[in-house]
Simulated assay, not measured.
Amino acid sequence: MGEDALLKVMAPVVGQVTSAVLVAAVGSPLSYPDTASYCKAFGLNLKERSSGKHKGKLKITKRGPSVARFYLYFAALRLIGHEPSVARWFAAKTERPGAMAGKQVVELMRKLARALWHHAHGRTFQAEKLFNLSAVAGA
């Protein structure tokens, strides 16, 4: 699949400009063997910094190109605003005690990157399949 065809496939999911930036920044999803390596290219893989006494929190590594994360962040926000099932999931996750909305957006970015890899490999994108709404309390 050529890059033009790939951009046409990804454009309905994240938009034309975002798909062009993602392909330019991290390359084609078709060149990655699995979803984990595609997320790692964005710098969205989780890392825990801890020692023998200190238990650290999970954070993203940010080792990939920041422009790709920037555009993926706004694609995730657009998905929250336009897809009712994503908005319900986001509302249910942020209403939990101690929840931070920013971390939920990063979680959605990771899910969206994995979905883009699957979408580029021929599966259809369905926002409802990004998560299990029945597992989220109050959804």
Results as ranks from 00 to 15, higher is better:
Gly2Asp: 15
Glu3Ile: 09
Glu3Phe: 04
Lys8Val: 01
Val9Met: 07
Ala11Asp: 10
Val13Cys: 05
Val14Phe: 03
Gly15Gln: 05
Gln16Met: 07
Gln16Cys: 02
Val17His: 14
Val17Trp: 07
Thr18Gly: 01
Ala20Phe: 01
Leu22Lys: 00
Val23Asn: 00
Val23Phe: 00
Ala25Gln: 12
Ser28Tyr: 04
Pro29Cys: 04
Ser31Trp: 00
Ser31Phe: 02
Pro33Ala: 15
Asp34Glu: 08
Ala36His: 13
Ala36Phe: 11
Ser37Tyr: 04
Ser37His: 14
Cys39Ile: 06
Cys39Leu: 15
Ala41Thr: 07
Leu44Phe: 08
Asn45Glu: 15
Leu46Glu: 13
Lys47Leu: 12
Ser50His: 11
His54Arg: 14
Gly56His: 12
Gly56Tyr: 13
Leu58Gly: 11
Leu58Glu: 12
Leu58Arg: 15
Leu58Cys: 07
Thr61Cys: 09
Thr61Arg: 12
Lys62Pro: 00
Gly64Gln: 07
Ser66Tyr: 03
Arg69Glu: 08
Arg69Ile: 06
Tyr71Asn: 06
Leu72Asp: 03
Leu72Phe: 03
Leu72Trp: 03
Tyr73Leu: 13
Phe74Gln: 14
Ala75Phe: 11
Leu79Tyr: 02
Ile80Arg: 02
Ile80Gln: 02
Ile80Met: 01
Gly81Tyr: 06
His82Val: 14
Glu83Leu: 04
Glu83Ile: 05
Val86Phe: 08
Trp89Glu: 03
Phe90Arg: 05
Ala91Thr: 15
Ala91Lys: 14
Ala92Ile: 06
Ala92Gln: 05
Lys93Trp: 01
Arg96Tyr: 04
Pro97Leu: 10
Gly98Asp: 07
Gly98Gln: 10
Ala99Ser: 15
Ala101Val: 06
Gly102His: 10
Lys103Trp: 05
Gln104Arg: 14
Glu107Ser: 15
Arg110Pro: 05
His118Asp: 10
Ala120Thr: 02
His121Ser: 01
Thr124Lys: 09
Thr124Pro: 03
Phe125Val: 01
Phe125Gly: 03
Gln126Met: 07
Gln126Ser: 12
Ala127Asn: 04
Ala127Pro: 01
Ala127Cys: 03
Glu128Asp: 14
Glu128Gln: 13
Lys129Tyr: 07
Lys129Leu: 13
Leu130Gln: 03
Asn132Tyr: 04
Asn132Val: 10
Leu133Ala: 12
Leu133Phe: 00
Ser134Phe: 02
Ala135Thr: 06
Val136Thr: 11
Val136Ala: 13
Gly138Pro: 06
Gly138Leu: 08
Gly138His: 07
Ala139Gln: 06
